[in-house]
């Protein structure tokens, strides 16, 4: 018996390694396990916690009372919160449109320059990211405030008589958001524009399409995947953004991101903040699904 066991043990010890060697499925699982563990602890568990919290109640001292109820969600249906939500949706949508309007010509131009110049331009687009986000927002505040660079310049050249009130308005929030998210639109757009062979546009011209028709019928549809990918990358974080409205919108502009942050940090109402987070999550999910249903999830995300 003893001899038999000792003969079997090494085999069983090595069987795991052998299985790993033979099964590509097991190899894939082993390779991805660090990521899976990381995601489990930083994404899945916190998310479940938030779901759980959103059905609880706030105690008198900001503590959590473990009693399952839907009060937080009914409270969210209050017109005050719905208005914040609607306003957040509009801001995120306008940010997305703004990045497309500014980003498309930029991406188009870069995709048409010789390859060596392209890498320089792409590099330049990424350079601002080397500076801290807050510092870049403060730079915008310096530009936009009443005695700021923009107003001094416009006053000096006599274009305006009185300084423009831009900072601490919704316009300022939009400017900051579009600035912040522009690269997320330009990069996927560039990728899909760069992939369009010149022969496609030559074929369009050859078949009788004038340049504007060739753009509308060939370039634009072929760059749609990039635009969708960019829109997802801009719209989702824009929905939850709270730093820009905080710093550039003043107290006047409250987005759902600010609301959530205030519930957790200021009002100490974690259950309500959790419910607001859930609503934001579900809304974003619905909008993203709606947006991507027609053209797929945007291949450019996978590049």
């Amino acid at each position: 018996m003893a001899a038999e066991t000792s003969a079997i043990t090494p085999t069983s010890r090595f069987s795991l390694i052998r299985r790993l060697r033979e099964s590509s499925k097991a190899q894939g699982l082993a390779l991805i396990s660090p990521t899976l563990i990381y995601l489990l602890f930083t994404l899945v568990l916190p998310l479940l916690l938030v779901v759980f919290l959103s059905f609880m109640t706030r105690g008198a001292y900001g503590n959590i009372v473990y009693r399952v109820n839907l009060d937080n969600y009914t409270r969210l249906m209050d017109p005050l919160y719905l208005r914040i939500l609607g306003y957040s949706l509009a801001t995120a949508a306008l940010t997305t449109v703004g990045t497309i309007l500014i980003g498309y010509p930029l991406a188009y131009y870069i995709a048409r320059t010789p390859p060596r110049q392209r890498s320089i331009y792409l590099f330049l687009i990424l350079v601002p990211f080397w500076t801290n986000f807050i510092i870049r927002i403060y730079a915008w505040i310096m530009i936009l405030r009443t005695e700021g660079l923009l107003n001094s310049f416009l006053l000096k050249i006599g274009f305006i008589q009185a300084p423009l009130e831009i900072l601490y308005t919704p316009t300022a929030v939009l400017i900051g958001m579009v600035y912040e998210f522009l690269p997320f639109m330009v990069l996927p757009l560039y990728t899909s524009l760069e992939k369009i062979e010149p022969a496609q546009l030559e074929a369009a011209a050859d078949l009788g399409a004038r340049p504007h028709m060739a753009f509308l019928r060939v370039t634009l549809p072929l760059s749609l995947p990039g635009m969708i990918a960019g829109s997802i990358l801009v719209f989702i974080p824009a929905m939850g953004m709270f730093v820009v409205p905080d710093l550039m919108g003043g107290a006047k502009t409250i987005l759902v991101g600010n609301l959530i942050r205030n519930q957790f940090l200021t009002a100490r109402d974690w259950p309500f903040g959790a419910a607001a987070s859930m609503l934001l999550l579900i809304l974003t999910l619905i909008f993203t699904l709606f947006y991507t249903r027609r053209a797929g999830f945007g291949e450019e995300l996978l590049v």
Binding site: E197, A199, Q200, E202, A203, A204, D206, R217, L222, L224
Partner: peptide, 12 residues
């Protein structure tokens, strides 16, 4: 009209 080496068909 031209027939291109890569065909240049409109993929979309």
């Amino acid at each position: 009209n031209t027939v291109f080496q890569s065909y240049a068909l409109f993929q979309h």
